[in-house]
Design a protein around this nucleic acid. Sequence first.
DNA 1: ACTTCGACCTGTTGGC
DNA 2: TGCCAACAGGTCGAAG
Length: 271
Amino acid sequence: MPELPEVETIRKGIMPHVQNHKVQEVVIRQSKLRWPVSPELREEMTGQYITSVQRRGKYLLLGTAGGTLLVHLGMSGSLRILAHNQVPQKHDHIDIVLEGSKLLRYTDPRRFGCMLWLRGDIYSHELLRSLGPEPLGMDFSGAVLFQKSRLRKTPVKSFIMDSHVVVGVGNIYANEALFLAGINPRIAAGKIARQRYQTLVRCIKDILQQAIELGGTTLRDFTDSDGKPGYFKQALRVYGRAGLPCTSCHQKLKEIRLGQRSTVYCTRCQR
DNA sequence: ACTTCGACCTGTTGGC
DNA sequence: TGCCAACAGGTCGAAG
């Protein structure tokens, strides 16, 4: 579920429920996530006011005066706002219980996500320090991609999915952006011209922006049950459509694997 | 410095 | 219907 547009939608969805609210209790039912969840999370976050809800790439950052909760949803994680009396289910690992009537519940069947309590300057933390630019920010441009890609032999799809190059471009949107840009995903990143990177950057920004706007409408209410976004299903041009006709030229879409990830493209439209 | 690959998990799907 | 392998929206870190 979580690519950048989903994470941004979740951020906007939970913000009004958690910002300026006081943490009454932190319940850790399962501490074995990608990294162990430290008891310090409970010890130090309890009693704090959540002052900010930010996003960096696919990380969510809940700021307090005493530290920051860094959340990543991995492949299967989700966050929901629920009532205090909602009974936890099998994969409901952590609750941030707020004063009043609500709690923020972290659910993650595969447990590839993480919840880390950080103190001090969070941007100097290992996980955040060397991240590339935000794809929707001003400092993500064709010039940047072009410059970073010189001499790199890795396929352009793997390249744009590398968080040190640019954050937040996951498998779905990498496939979609390359289709829109008309670029074959297996071309070596270092062999792509500056001009084409400008096109690619425009496509990445467009597809992410569009997905955020759609996500915003279907996932507006975070007090609902699982808000599983069905929004992009219809908008997807290549992802999940291997063997089906290209929406542009009707050629059968091809599926290959790049970096162990499913890659779908049109051999006629993407060169 | 760059690339590849295993690892972390559970749930779902498709083939036999 | 059941069983088993393959695969799934991520990404770190080790090894080459």
